[in-house]
Design a protein around this nucleic acid. Structure first.
Lengths: 274, 274
DNA sequence: TTGCTCCTCACGTCACGTGAGGTGGC
DNA sequence: TTGCTCCTCACGTCACGTGAGGTGGC
């Protein structure tokens, strides 16, 4: 008969703490092979060691317990691998973002903060665009936007629609405040498409309203764009000209255009009162 | 007079949620410039925007609020920069570790799990070593060990002590279970140093006890060493030969010897009953 | 007056960690 | 019999998020 391990032995074999093991039992993630009726002593089977290893590995990567449960309980290998690959993709995206933030902080520490960019107030005209709307989580905004802009540009090209300006996006206040809200990716075009037949479900032609905006150009990667928002927001408040409506970003120089992050240019347009 | 912002305006300017701002007020991290006596309304000054930016940046990097408070309240620039640089170093170490774990998981997914290494039981003799003891946190073990081993090797060389085997470390059970416990880094030497005068405070000569151990060689990076621990632990339990005492790792092939992570070799020695 | 914004509790979340107080097994 | 290991509550931690229920300002 295969020997059963006490919780302490199992803890030593798997490098999971006793407290964590009891927690995994309680939430039904990893229950001992046997529990003594009288004493309540947990007994683990040797065969449970690999599952415990998997749990530890994924917890090291901050995978939530619910997701790990899905992985362990997946009906087939494909389902399981999809859950894992999704999580790894999220992890890697977060790694990239963290590295960018670290780099930008190192920059701040070395005193490379340049003079603030100037603020311009102008009156933007309304414009025809192809757009994709979506409710987007803050953390998933970059990949969502990349996808959407690529799709829009492909569609404009396929329809033979001439571009009339840089692609961009509108961000609702809800998106900034609750980190979960509507985002509209758009590509300005010279005319409406001939028929709606060629457009896929989520691409719609529309007209974006114009109006007065305060504009500041952000130079560099997105990781540091909050400084531009802060400077622009301060300017708007200071002059008492705050308006309403979504904030617009125009992507003047994108990662498609250059490999040098410091060459990136994003126009941030903050609606103001006329 | 500089205008004061409501919490909503300040939230929009800084991209910090209203709930987060109230929380920062409560814990004294960022208090509004003014609070209306009657209504309790919080009013923030424009000049508080940069501090809020700093807070958001560091929270994005998971810096705990207590540390951020230290940064904001540092008496001078050096103190402040030291706190920040320390945290960035921890972040970067964690990034490296996460990347290694991701890579090892990708490996597992691609089915590159090789046949398990064989377990050997042998009787190790006692040995003379130079060692450094320390109470070490799990997450800080790798840099601590790197430092300690480098110091030991430098010391052995300076004292003209011939090496008699690979460097290694002993890990207490407490270290594995509570993720915070004693670790002893050591370098085997042919003889004791002539006088203790040349040794710095934390390096001490000692004799490590020998005895029967079950041994398995781990091939590859440390990120996946838990699989070796699991296999070795299972073997020991299965044969009912579990002994007591610290687990010993001997670093046969280290990152100093090769640039290929898959060429790394670590001997894991698990004490057993004679 | 109508919304909108703001307020304060109080409680929930997530994955455990920290004791207290007590019992079982060799 | 003595330690050691194990048990179950109950509560704490961290950084907020989620309502409920109510009030202030334009």
């Amino acid at each position: 008969m295969a020997p059963l391990l006490t919780i302490g032995e199992f803890s030593r074999a798997t490098h999971l703490s006793v407290k964590a093991l009891r927690h995994y039992d309680e939430v039904g993630l990893l229950s001992p092979a046997d529990v003594d009726r009288a004493s309540g002593y947990r007994r683990y089977a040797l065969g449970q060691v690999p599952a415990a290893q998997v749990i530890r590995r994924f917890r090291d990567l901050d995978m939530p317990i619910d997701l790990i449960r899905e992985v362990l309980g997946a009906p087939d290998r494909e389902t399981r691998d999809r859950v894992i690959v999704d999580h790894l993709a999220r992890m890697e995206a977060k790694l990239d973002q963290t590295q960018a933030t670290v780099a930008s902080l190192r920059g701040l520490l070395e005193g490379r903060s340049s003079a603030p960019a100037p603020v311009e107030v102008r009156n933007d005209p309304a414009s025809l665009v192809l757009c994709i709307r979506g409710r987007v989580l803050w953390d998933e905004a970059e990949p969502w936007l990349d996808d959407a802009l690529r799709e829009l540009q492909g569609m404009a090209e396929a329809e033979g629609l001439e571009s009339t300006g840089p692609v961009g996006a509108l961000y609702s206040e809800e998106f900034f405040e609750a980190h979960d809200g509507e985002v509209v990716a758009f590509a300005p075009v010279a005319r409406m498409p001939a028929g709606a037949a060629g457009l896929t479900g989520r691409v719609v032609p529309t007209s974006l309203p114009g109006g007065p905006v305060a504009v500041m150009v952000h130079r560099g990667p997105f990781a540091s764009i909050d400084t531009t928002y802060a400077a622009l927001g301060a300017h708007v408040v200071e002059h008492g000209i705050g308006g309403i409506g979504p904030i617009r970003e125009n992507y003047l120089v994108t990662a498609d255009d250059t490999d040098d992050p410091s060459a990136l240019r994003t126009e941030v347009c903050w609606p103001v009162r006329g």
